[in-house]
């Protein structure tokens, strides 16, 4: 009971307050839908769980050995009807939440593009030890530990890793996806409000992991265009040599940008570790298969 109230209290305060950052304060359609599923499923289950907890405490208290008024029924050890009920209640719950799971898994599948009249932009994200590199292949620029995207525009990510596994995660915009060397995962998101969000690596990746977070600046399209223009005019160029320098382990790197990016750099990073990726593409479906 106590933890029931506590859980309710926690979820209640965070939702009503609405001022927390993170999963409960979504700023894009994907994260919003994911929060909705979270709330719906919690509601469905609380409807079962709270009565169970109340009943447990009530039954245990009423049938305490010292209670003379409670009837002792040592032979009450089987009841076909109750067994029916006992199996069907959790089954019904699972049927409900299972449907929610099924729909959610398809609708919000990370590789699925977001339908929109605005043309989406493509970003390639690479996790390095211990920083993030974001390449804008269509725009020919790149940035480190800092992500800039236009508001209201679908963003389509391709992600890989230089070595160890990380997880790309911007809680207020979409769920996370792993980055793994030698393969590509995909993620789509859209930000509906021009603010700054927190992005991070969610999967432990070694010594510098705690500093593997970055800001996501969401700005109006015209400011985004300005940002691209100014980025193109300053900073180093990203080619295989500067990439090799960048890939060396380093911690808490201050964000900076590259004014140009060598073509196909992302693919060469992905394949550099792999002479043959057939097996991988075979065993892991959609997102990777698309790559072949």
């Amino acid at each position: 009971m106590r933890n029931g109230l506590l859980a309710l209290f926690l979820i209640g305060t965070s939702m009503l307050g609405g001022c927390t950052e993170g999963v409960l304060d979504p700023k894009g359609p994907i994260a919003f839908a994911e929060r909705q599923i979270l709330i719906n499923a919690t509601g469905i289950m609380l409807a079962i769980v709270i009565p169970v907890v109340v009943a447990t405490l009530g039954v245990a208290f009423w049938f305490r050995a010292s209670n003379e008024r409670a009837r002792y029924r040592p032979d009450f050890v089987y009841s076909g009807r109750l067994e029916m009920l006992v199996w069907s209640i959790p089954l019904m719950t699972v049927l409900l939440t299972g449907t929610v799971a099924w729909i959610g898994a398809y609708d919000l599948d990370p590789p699925k593009p977001i339908a929109s009249s605005t043309k989406s932009i493509k970003i390639q994200a690479i996790s390095l030890d211990w920083k993030w590199l974001f390449i804008y292949p269509e725009l020919g620029v790149a940035s480190v530990n800092h992500l800039t995207i236009p508001v209201g525009t679908p963003v389509s990510f391709e992600l890989t890793s230089s070595g160890v596994m990380n997880s790309f995660f911007v809680p207020q915009l979409a769920g996370q996806i792993y980055t793994m060397a030698g393969m590509v995962t995909r993620l789509n998101l859209r930000a509906d409000y021009a603010e700054t969000y927190r992005g991070l690596s969610a999967n432990f990746s070694g010594e510098g992991f705690a500093d593997m977070h970055f800001n996501v600046d969401v700005m109006p399209p015209e400011r985004f265009a300005q940002w691209i223009a100014s980025t193109r005019s300053v900073g180093p160029a990203l080619d295989s040599k500067t990439y090799a320098d960048l890939a060396r382990p380093s911690t808490a790197v201050t964000p900076f940008t590259f004014q140009s990016v060598a073509p196909n750099l992302f693919d060469s990073i992905r394949t550099s570790s792999m002479q043959s990726d057939d097996a991988l593409c075979r065993s892991y479906s959609t997102s990777m298969r698309a790559e072949k």
Binding site: A31, G175, Q176
Partner: peptide
């Protein structure tokens, strides 16, 4: 166990 929620709170 809901994939859509798991993406948000996994790890």
């Amino acid at each position: 166990a809901l994939p859509a929620v798991d993406w948000q709170v996994h790890n």
